[in-house]
Design a protein around this nucleic acid. Structure first.
Length: 401
RNA sequence: GGUGGGUUACUCAAGUGGCCAACGAGGGCGGACUGUAAAUCCGCUGACUACGUCUUCGAAGGUUCGAAUCCUUCACCCACCA
């Protein structure tokens, strides 16, 4: 296979939809012939700073582009964030102040460059040009589109039909986002499938403003969260953050259902599609245990954000605690006064939120003292060192003085 | 601006004077089982050294022996009309 063919195959992997593939082909081909680079735009919303695996689906794709000659334009939507974007639900999003936005952007960069190549990335803020746009510029921007077409957008249409309110500002957001592509003269824009309308707006506006090119659009599927149903997001608490501890990442990946595992393989793993097919077949006819497949995935993803050793350590730790019922290595320690009531000790060691909850868990046989089930919720701890455990995962070492 | 409806625990959502610490579902937590923190089944899910006490149903007052439930004012949200 030629360089170009390999590149195009890697670029197409796992995508939900590509608009104007010919253009991408041309750009990649030109790069391999003349060394001339091209630009790939990706926007991010500086409201929440911490990245999770869902974001990395896009990042991985951008990395592939960088490998094949692209400069990535990482667009920080600082202007839109200062106004407050009501997109989606009826609840208006919080308006962020400048300082928070910059801080979020900073955290974001640190995390992004775990994956992306810093040398091939430009960070741009859309306030740079949107602030200058002014009322007249904004109004002339709005003349490029009409209400009927705006209402074609899926969520607008649904809400309009259902008689729910749509704010005028919501009509402006896609326009502003598209206008960013005009200013950046992007060759390609990458985003999630939920962004389709906005991504296409970039094409439309580049044509209207005679940029001389229309960006190709590449859409990635939305990654499901740990529950396997809803999209991965922080607010649903079904995410794996890329800055989480290795053992957390490892454990969380291992906790996904067998079915979801294949989805994660497809969208997150570096394994080739044919390798993944092979794994599936092996599992299907019993040559490979599904747990083994899941462990490998967990190892791969943990190693991506740390390294091989950390991943192996995480696995060993996990196996010790859950398979052999051994103690984890890093148990938090606490010191307490003598004769402390066990329920109080559990709360002080942050294993339980209240003594009421502690009593309930003891009653249900969920609390262990030095590996032995605690039967009496009224017991006190006298002098000595103890290992307290709630459930399978929460541990604390307690020194009673 | 007018009219009507709403605001209940982490979320959704019952309850319209005492049987309400408040049905149900989801989530969460614990247990059993297993190959894992998967799946399935069962239990728990306001606080408090606790079969009793205390604080909760948008906020503040009031009626009553007794209020999430009735009344008044305020705040916020939604729908219809203008």
């Amino acid at each position: 296979m030629s360089n170009v063919e390999i590149a195009l195959e890697e670029i197409s992997r796992g995508v939900a939809e590509i608009i104007d593939m010919e253009r991408i082909e041309k750009l990649v081909k030109r790069f391999y012939e003349t060394g001339e680079s091209y630009t790939v735009k990706a926007g991010f919303d500086p409201t929440g700073a911490d990245l999770h695996l869902g974001h990395t689906v896009l990042m991985q794709k951008l990395k592939v582009f960088q490998k094949h000659g692209a400069r990535v334009q990482l667009l920080v939507g600082d202007f839109t964030a200062t106004i407050g974007d009501p997109t989606g639900k009826s609840e208006t999003r919080k308006v962020l102040d400048r300082e928070t936005i910059l801080k979020n952007a900073q955290t974001y960069q640190e995390q992004v460059f775990i994956i992306l190549d810093r040398e091939k990335t430009d960070i741009v803020f859309n306030s740079t040009w949107l602030e200058k746009l002014g009322a007249s510029g904004l109004i002339s921007l709005t003349t490029t589109y009409n209400v009927a077409r705006m209402l074609e957008r899926d969520d607008f249409e649904k809400r309009y039909r259902a008689g729910q309110s749509i704010s005028i500002s919501e009509f402006i957001y896609p326009l502003l986002q598209g206008y960013d592509s005009v200013e950046l003269k992007s060759d390609i824009e990458v985003g999630g499938t939920d962004q389709k309308f906005n991504l296409l707006m970039g094409r439309h506006l580049q044509r209207v403003y005679s940029v001389g090119k229309e960006q190709a659009v590449l859409m990635m599927p939305i990654l499901e969260g740990l529950d396997g149903v809803q999209k991965m997001s922080k607010s649903l608490n079904n995410y794996i953050g890329i800055t989480e501890e290795p053992k957390e990442i490892y454990g969380k990946v291992l906790s996904i259902s067998d079915e979801l595992m294949w989805r994660y393989y497809e969208l997150l793993s570096d394994k080739s599609l044919s390798e993944i097919e092979q794994l599936k077949t092996d599992v299907a006819n019993g040559d490979l245990h599904p747990k083994k497949a899941k462990e490998n995935l967990a190892l791969e993803l943990t190693a991506r954000f740390y390294n091989e050793e950390s991943a192996t350590m995480a696995k060993r730790e996990f196996d010790n605690v859950f398979k052999s019922n051994q103690l984890p290595t890093d148990i938090p320690e606490f010191e307490m006064e003598s004769d402390i009531w066990i329920c109080k000790a559990l709360v002080d060691a942050k294993l339980e939120p209240s003594t009421s909850q502690a009593r309930r868990d003891i009653k249900q046989g969920g609390v262990r003292l030095n590996q032995e089930k605690v039967a009496d919720e009224k017991m006190n701890l006298s002098l000595g060192e103890y290992i307290l455990q709630v459930g399978k995962r929460k541990f604390a070492k307690v020194k009673v003085k």
